[in-house]
Amino acid sequence: METKEKTRFKHLEKWESTLSACIRCGYCFEHCPMFKYTGWESDAPRAKIITAFGLLSGELEPTKMAADKIFNCFYCKRCEAACSSGVTLTEVFTDAKKDLVEMGLKGPGTTSVTYMNCARCLVCVKACPHEARFHGEDGIETDPVKCQACGICVEVCPAGAAKIENNFGTGREDLITESSRFLSTHTSAKAIVFACNWSYFPDLQASRLPESETHDKDYEIYVNMCAGRLESQLLMAPFLNKAWGVLVAACPEDECQHKNGNTRAKKMIQGMQSTLERVNIDPARLQVVEIPAGDKTLFQAEIDTFIDRLNSMGPIR
């Protein structure tokens, strides 16, 4: 019963007792966006902890596939909020990433990359809330240990060169496709809610409801990693698909995990509201609300209020 090659993971090593302290209850699955999207338990936070243990103990080879388990994470810390045993999962992941990078396994997983068409304008370097983007030997690079996959660089890059390749359903195109699908398949559909992942899903985790329970659904919630990542094309898309309104949930002032994602979103939405007004659409049809992390009651209340307001306004003519 002895472990081998442990020393290769010298940053991860300090978490040995934490890895044992995780009681493997799996409560952290709940709402992990990775798990919600892929449905594979091996992508869920518990599996990442198991992977970290496997790497540290030498039972699991540090391959690209194993490394990706760790690099595929949005750092939303929902798992930590749900953990029954106070495990600080993302801190464990960060140290595992340090070791993996030293072994030449750099992801990218969900961390951002830079495409050839980068104009070297440094906008992303300035915007990155985690100082993960820098001007390196190969142009603009990302430090995969520091990157927390917020997607802000993707949103600000004027050349479209900053990308998160493994989006797991949170990319602009995915969200546009999914929200259009909801709007076109539900005659009762009125609103699309884009929730920052820090808000809450007052919703099913994975199970699917019978038609009879969902056919009269009037809104659908789509999760975004940070409100700062929302951009106008995405927010306009539902209106083009006959939505009555769009609601955005962001963290309260000073509580953004990515520094200023929420204020960035608010500014952008203000701009869009004036555009709506100019084309004679009530700007109140596009709203942003502040939801503290995990406040599911408030989130549901805000959604209900928004739907009530839309009901009094009726569809866009």
Partner: peptide
């Protein structure tokens, strides 16, 4: 799934 990184995770429960 047949990659060891997936199998390893599925080798555990609580």
């Amino acid at each position: 799934k047949t990659d060891p990184s997936d199998l390893y995770a599925f080798g555990s429960d609580s």
